[in-house]
């Protein structure tokens, strides 16, 4: 059972790499068209130190943005979930804000806080990822069946007791669903900023330097590194979900 869970995804990755290699080889594409997995190994060897340093920069800034998004998104979702008035007031604002393509916000923020690399990157990761969290928490709270409240209210429980004992745990499955979406969004935010920001940091800056130097294998190597970080973070969320909302899984 355990072995299957590890081996099957690994086999899928291996097959993907083989197909990729084969595609480039059969089509006879040069590196500037598409690098093949075998070209990536020298790129990793040459820049291994940079990958470690910049990968860490990307990772911690994404996580910092996510943590902020969780705190702010949950608070906003609670306000909208408990108050009809606030929901009516905030939804149009929130939807309008979310409709703005974040790619257009990135250069504005980059200029606004030019040189504050960590700050503007975390800010974009946060801005891009709080929306699904706020919406899911608000929907989770506003759709709580009145009987759940009544069971505790009839015993004289306070609003905050009802929130901690019932509303919050009941919202967790929706919350984790949103967090999985937020993880990938936060990565997009971080990288957009790292690529756009002049003299930026992180894997996005490494990608940009690969572009400047026409080092195509390096660019592809960065993409794979980003995918790897994304997978790691996603599974961290899955592990958290298993711990805190495992009860909601009915497939076992």
């Amino acid at each position: 059972m355990k072995a299957r869970q590890v081996l099957v995804p690994l086999a899928a990755v291996a097959i993907f790499l083989v197909l990729w290699e084969a595609l480039v080889w059969v089509m006879g594409w040069p590196n500037y068209r598409m690098a093949s997995p075998s070209d990536l190994i020298p790129a990793y060897e040459k820049y291994w130190n940079l990958f470690l340093v910049m990968g860490w920069q990307t990772l911690w800034r994404t996580v910092a943005g996510l943590i902020l998004a969780v705190i702010f998104g949950t608070a906003l979702g609670m306000i909208m979930g408990f108050s009809r008035t606030m929901r009516d007031a905030l939804y149009p604002l929130l939807v309008g804000f979310n409709a703005i393509p974040k790619a257009t916000v990135v250069p504005i923020v980059a200029l606004m806080f030019v040189g504050w690399h960590d700050f503007n990157t975390v800010l974009i990761a946060f801005i891009i990822s709080f929306f699904p969290i706020a919406v899911s928490v608000s929907i989770g709270l506003s759709t709580l069946e009145p009987e759940y409240r009544d069971i505790l209210r009839s015993l004289g429980a306070s609003q905050s007791t009802i929130f901690w004992k019932i509303a919050l745990p009941k919202t967790l499955p929706e919350f984790f669903g949103a967090l999985k979406v937020a993880v990938t969004l936060a990565f997009i935010g971080t990288n957009l900023m790292e690529i756009v920001s002049p003299h930026g940091r992180g894997l996005g800056a490494l990608f940009d330097s690969g572009k400047t130097n026409s080092d195509y294998p390096l660019m592809f190597a960065v993409l794979i590194a980003l995918a790897f970080l994304g997978i790691v973070l996603y599974y961290v969320v899955v592990a958290l979900e298993k711990t805190f909302a495992g009860w909601a899984d009915r497939t076992v």
Binding site: E145, E147, Y148, I151, K165, I166, P169, K170, L172, A245, W247, A248
Partner: peptide, 8 residues
């Protein structure tokens, strides 16, 4: 009518 047990 709805037993409203807490699933967790």
């Amino acid at each position: 009518q709805n037993p409203v047990l807490l699933e967790w």
